[in-house]
């Protein structure tokens, strides 16, 4: 089947089988930042953003279902060479080690912050509990999301000197 969808702002026409999982379609389109870690919708490393405010596990959605929708992946987060605050914060807080869960974790956190711009530590742990990480023990991920929340709430340009 031919499908048309938007990935990271640009329109893509893809040829897929009905059974093609969205994650395979995204990766086959060259965007390999979205990973695959399980078969049971458990690990969340394939998490992408659907239509701006919804996080989905792209291994648990068929590519044909994305027809007409907008997908954002990790590759769509930075603006040119300017990192998204979440990316910057994951780096600053050592929120990643092997990096395999990182894209899904960042996408999940991105959606979490849209629904709750100023989450407590407990709310972050709750909101990210659909995404597994084997390396970090989550603690620095939580700190990274807190930092990003702060950065996102600061008025633009007021970052450096307060």
């Amino acid at each position: 089947m031919e499908i048309t969808l938007k990935i990271n702002g640009s329109e893509k026409k893809l040829s897929v089988e009905p059974r093609t999982l969205l994650v395979h379609a995204i990766r086959d389109a060259g965007l390999t930042g979205t990973h695959i870690g399980c078969d049971s919708s458990s690990c969340g490393v394939c998490t992408v953003v659907l239509d701006g405010k919804t996080a989905v596990k792209s291994c648990t959605m068929f590519a044909v279902q994305a027809e007409g929708h907008e997908i954002t992946t990790i590759e769509g987060m930075a603006q040119g060479d300017k990192l998204h605050p979440l990316q910057q914060a994951f780096h600053d807080q050592h929120g990643l080690q092997c990096g395999y869960c990182t894209p899904g974790m960042i996408m999940a956190a991105h959606v979490l912050l849209q629904h709750n711009p100023n989450p407590t530590e407990e709310e972050i742990r709750f909101g990210l509990s659909g995404n597994l990480c084997r390396c970090t023990g989550y603690q620095n991920i939580v700190k990274a999301v807190q930092q990003a929340a702060q950065m996102l709430q600061q008025p633009a340009g007021a970052a450096a000197d307060d």
Partner: peptide, 9 residues
């Protein structure tokens, strides 16, 4: 129900 990401779908 399930986990926070699954609940979106």
């Amino acid at each position: 129900v399930a986990d926070p990401i699954v609940r979106f779908r």
